[in-house]
Simulated scan of single mutants.
Amino acid sequence: MDKIQNKFIDVRGLKLHLAEIGTGPKVIVFLHGFPEIWYTWRHQMIAVANAGFRAIAPDYRGYGLSDPPPEPEKSSFHDFLGDLLGILDALGIPKVFLVAKDFGARPAYLFALLHPNRVLGVVTMGVPHIPPGPSTFHNYLPEGFYLSRWREPGRAEADFGRFDAKTVLRKIYILFSRSEVPVAAENQEILDLVDPSTPLPPWFTEEDLATYGALYEKSGFQTALQVPYRSFGEDFSITDPIVKVPALFIMGSKDYVLKFPGLEDFVKSGKVKELVPNLEIIFLPEGTHFVHEQSPDEVNQLLLSFLSKHV
């Protein structure tokens, strides 16, 4: 961890934070999900740097150490895509591999569609490529489904606001490590699904939690609730949704996301390959939603194998 450097660059009027390790022309940009931050990629960044790659992991605008936008409630995936392009241009990087987790899969695949000349390959974990436009997977889940609750302005803010950032992160990491979809009862909030005495997952330490907690203490959750949860319906005017670059999808067999209606069939039937023809799919039998933190050695091996084939 000591070798990972932190830097700030000016992009589109904001100071964005990047964690970076390694040098050279072979570059990987890591895109985090929620409740993650750049730190979620610590194991992968060191592994790829040791293999000769330059690894860069930004905090999105409004997340962690990056500046918040002037109006967080108006943030969008368009902003994240513009920031990613701005980062590559500012650093003079012509082409990259994109490695993404959770909702980070959306900007990774959208960037590959909108800027195909800048992307060598895409690796995602926990979420496959879903066609641009409004997602329907959540439409068949009950009112207490966490995505529905967090899309409702003010609901998550009130839920999260009862606790400090570290406690919020503890509860969400425990919740998202389970194989059940988080669904609250009518008079219950999402964070109340986790009993305070529940231990952290064995692969996630109190030190890890403290790092996450400090970063979200700084940024708060305002932008994080806007993007992704309130931004899924954006129109990107993409006429051809077929991703041409090589891609890898790593999914834990115990990931709760597989229980979104229709999603497991979408992946296992091969329908996802209609959108990403050059896609390799790997399931990790014991994997949860955080496969890259839960089984870093296994994920690093899969990642390096993919990179060596397509570099």
Rank of each mutant, 00 (worst) to 15 (best):
S253M: 13
L191Q: 05
V27F: 03
P199F: 03
S75A: 14
F232Q: 15
K26L: 12
L215R: 08
P261F: 00
N300R: 01
E206D: 15
E143F: 11
G24W: 07
D159M: 10
G213K: 09
S269N: 10
V194I: 12
V276R: 03
L258H: 04
E71H: 15
H32L: 02
F137S: 10
V291N: 04
I282T: 15
L18T: 04
P296E: 08
F103S: 05
S177D: 14
R170D: 07
V311N: 11
V245H: 11
L302E: 11
Q5T: 09
S76T: 07
E180N: 12
L284V: 14
P153R: 14
N50W: 01
D89M: 00
R12D: 08
L303N: 00
R61V: 04
E293G: 07
T23L: 07
I130V: 15
S148P: 08
V243Q: 12
F34C: 00
K273C: 00
F163I: 02
Y60N: 07
E234A: 15
Y146N: 05
D164S: 04
Q5R: 15
I172M: 11
L14W: 07
G233Y: 10
R162M: 10
S295V: 09
D83V: 06
G62F: 13
D67P: 09
H32R: 02
E36H: 05
N50G: 02
G144D: 12
L191E: 03
I172L: 14
V119E: 09
V123H: 06
E234H: 14
L31I: 08
K101R: 13
E217P: 09
V11Y: 01
L275V: 05
L225T: 06
P196M: 01
G24L: 11
A158R: 10
F249L: 14
N139A: 11
V123K: 03
F160E: 03
G24D: 08
N6W: 01
V122L: 01
N6M: 12
D59M: 03
L191Y: 04
A55Q: 01
G220V: 07
G33S: 01
K7I: 04
I130N: 04
P134G: 08
L169N: 13
L31P: 06
D67I: 06
V123S: 11
L279R: 06
L215F: 10
L110E: 12
R151N: 15
M45T: 03
P296S: 07
N6Y: 13
E152V: 03
E20Y: 05
L120P: 02
N187A: 11
L215K: 06
L191F: 03
L303S: 00
H289V: 08
